[in-house]
Amino acid sequence: MSSRDKILNAVKAAQPDKQPLPDLSAIPLKFDDAVAKFIEVLSTIGATVKRLPKDRFQSELMDDIGEGKNVVNTISEFVLDFASPDKTVAPQTYDNLDYSIIPGQLGVAENGAIWVTDTEFQIRALPFICEHLILVISAETIVHNMHEAYDKIGIDNPGFGAFIAGPSKTADIEQSLVLGAHGPRFMTAYVLE
């Protein structure tokens, strides 16, 4: 018998009587102002958060990035003077990338996380390999909690998606928080209205 069948048989023989799934409706957490909460939480976990009108985003972003930087932009909505992701090159090529600009599908107020998928950023390494990650979301996509987030995301998302909450970090050395472990050392979220 294959290990697969051996394991499945053993599990079948051992598993307890069927138990129903719980009702999750009583659990959600709500805030008076989800956008404000989102900004508050994300700011406390190492990110810079900027809330601004959509029409000011482009100029503000250009000012923030400045001249002479190595940038990849994956937002199709804005025409920015930056390179688009190139899927024909190895992802290693993006080592030494200064900025990745990536659109978020939604933000979660309770934990400051932003949901991103490779439908938008195309090259999976992009949110992780850069020095400074820029995530851009619309304020109206901010939900209160993770239950609402998964309701919105559904189950048919593409090959890779992630919740990202702040810059890469570690506290493995004596619990001293250090930003910039293996991924971005900085993260800025633009919350557009």
Partner: peptide
């Protein structure tokens, strides 16, 4: 949808953070 429950529980219990920096959902190979 159960991830909503567990991602809320995991990091708060582990380190007192609201969520880990990355919660990566690997579904298909690139």
């Amino acid at each position: 949808e159960h991830l909503g429950v567990f991602l809320r529980l995991l990091t708060r219990s582990a380190t007192g953070q609201p969520i880990t920096t990355y919660s990566s959902h690997f579904k298909k190979p690139r």
